[in-house]
Amino acid sequence: MPVKSTLYLIPSPIDGSYNSHQVPLAETERIAHLRVFVVENLKHARRYLRKLLPEVAIDDCTFYEMGKHATPESLSRLWSTMKSGTDAGVISEAGLPGVADPGGSVVSMAHQMGMRVIPLIGPGSIFMALMASGFNGQQFSFHGYLPREGADRSKKIRELESQAHRTGYTQIFMETPFRNNALLDDILKSCGSSTMLCIARAISQADECINTRSIQDWQKSTPNLHKVPVIFLIGKI
C-alpha cells in the first residue's frame, strides 16, 4: 500500500553556502515544513539548513545519516517515521542527491515503499558543466570517479578518449579535489594533442571558471586545480 509521505531531494553547493540563484526561493518554500532530514554529512547539512531555512530551529529537527555513516537501525527508524505520514528531505554533501552520491539508495527505498519523490531545482555541477562545455549534450556518459592507480587511470582515460572520438558521446568524470592535479597530469599525458578537454571548476561559486581547449593548449597553460571542485569532460566540437 502506498505511503502518503513525500521525500524531497534537496541540492546543496559544495561549500555549504546558499544564494537564491542556486536554490530558488520558490523551492525553499516547498520544504519549509520539513523537520526530518536524511543527510550524507551531518555538520555540512546543519550549517547549510541554517542558511537555506533560517526560520527553522535546527535543534528541533531529526537527522538520519546515509552512506558510510548509516546504520540499519537508524534507517529503520526513518522509514517508520515516514510511514506515519511525515515528509523528509535528502541532503547530499554536495550537488544533487542520488547523482554520484549515496542518496540513490534512499530514493530507491522510497519508491519501493510507494512514497512520492520530488527533486528540487538547484546546483548540479555535472549537468551545468555539460551545458557550458560546447560538447554533445544529446549523447553523453558520466563515469564518476576514475581508478586511483596511475596505470589503470591512464588506461581508462585513453578508453574515454577513444569513445568520444568513435561515438561522439561526451565523456564526463570527476575526482576528489585534492587529487585533481594528478588526474589532470594523467589526462595531458594520455590524450592526443588535438583531443578537446573541458575543465569546469568551482561551478556556482564566486571563482567559477569553465574552459574548453585542446590538450595541446592545456599543456601550454596548465591550471592549478588543487582542492577545487572540478568536472572534467572529453568531447568533440
Rank of each mutant, 00 (worst) to 15 (best):
T6S: 14
S105E: 15
I187L: 15
Q171N: 01
I10H: 11
L146I: 08
A57S: 07
H21Y: 08
S193Q: 05
Q112C: 11
Y8T: 09
L130H: 02
G98W: 10
S108Q: 15
S105I: 12
I10L: 04
P119M: 01
M82W: 06
A129R: 03
F135S: 02
V23K: 04
G67W: 08
V117S: 14
A200P: 12
V56Q: 03
D186H: 13
G16I: 06
G134H: 08
K156Q: 13
V99M: 11
H165V: 09
M115T: 07
F232W: 03
G137R: 02
T86F: 00
A26H: 04
F37A: 09
G95K: 00
G122F: 04
T6N: 12
L52V: 10
Y8L: 11
R148T: 07
Q171R: 01
D101R: 13
K68N: 07
R47M: 10
K51S: 14
I126W: 13
V107A: 12
L34N: 05
E27V: 13
P24V: 07
M196L: 13
S214L: 10
P2R: 08
D217H: 10
D217T: 04
N136E: 15
C209F: 07
S204C: 06
R77H: 07
V36H: 07
Y18W: 09
F135A: 09
T212F: 06
S105V: 06
L120H: 01
K156F: 11
S80G: 15
I187W: 08
L160A: 00
Q139D: 04
A45V: 03
Y145C: 05
M115G: 05
R201Q: 06
R153H: 10
G124R: 03
W79D: 12
H21A: 07
G103V: 04
Y18H: 12
A94H: 01
F127Y: 05
A57D: 15
H69Y: 13
L78H: 11
K4R: 09
L225K: 03
D207W: 12
I14K: 03
G98E: 11
H69C: 02
L49E: 11
